[in-house]
């Protein structure tokens, strides 16, 4: 049995590399998009608000796998062709970015009006008010939500296996095809590896949650 696990190691390591690559890239773009769309939905310009709302509702209203398939299989129809990795990162970032933008917006709206008023009274520009006063306070409120979304995103990376990207899940399915007798070992190992990848995110998310519930100083 130990031999079985050792034979699996190179393929799973390769898969883990891809999974982490997709995870890290998607996390970065998710939170960039989250701030753009979250702030955009609060813009004083109606057109920007409408565009952001449509984006958020479409990506929250359909499912990640459908979006992934659409980007990977449909866009080539319009002459836009992505590698599986790029398509995966784009779909994940757009989908989780839509959810995260609601975290951003909610946190910004939760800052008391008096803070904006004090900033106006000190004659700060709208940009300064946002960057110096509102966002620094709102950011702390966003963190627990970001932590939990990051765990969700990590789990979502497994879907890229369905567009043939060689991540952990894909490698395991391939391994299983050639070692059907070891199906149990392969999937137990797979679940454990995902759990190990999730562990730092869980610890971080729980810590952020606890800190937030203690109140901010």
């Amino acid at each position: 049995m130990i031999n079985t696990y050792i034979e699996m190691v190179p393929a799973l390591l390769n898969g883990a590399k891809i999974t982490i690559e997709v995870l890290v890239l998607s996390l970065i773009f998710t939170y960039i998009i989250a701030f753009i769309a979250g702030l955009g939905k609060l813009s004083k310009f109606r057109a920007i608000r409408v565009v952001c709302t449509i984006y958020i509702e479409i990506f929250r209203g359909t499912s990640l796998l459908v979006q992934l398939f659409w980007i990977y299989f449909v866009l080539p129809f319009f002459g836009i062709e992505f590698s599986a990795l790029t398509a995966g990162v784009i779909a994940m970032s757009l989908c989780y970015g839509a959810y995260a933008s609601e975290v951003v917006r909610g946190a910004i709206l939760s800052i008391p009006k008096g803070q904006t008023e004090a900033a106006i009274a000190l004659n700060m520009t709208p940009f300064q008010r946002m960057m110096k006063i509102i966002i620094p306070q709102a950011f702390k409120i966003m963190l627990p939500g970001f932590g939990n979304l990051s765990i969700e995103l990590m789990k979502g990376t497994s879907l890229v296996s369905l567009i043939t990207l060689g991540d952990l899940t894909y490698q395991s399915l391939t391994l299983r095809n050639t070692n059907v007798a070891h199906t149990t070992e392969i999937f137990v190992a797979l679940l454990v590896i995902y759990f190990i990848i999730a562990l730092p995110l869980i610890v971080l998310a729980r810590w952020l949650e606890r800190r937030a519930s203690l109140g901010r100083v």
Partner: peptide, 9 residues
């Protein structure tokens, strides 16, 4: 302001 509105951060 009545509520001070200091910047808590």
């Amino acid at each position: 302001f009545q509520q001070f509105n200091l910047f808590p951060h």
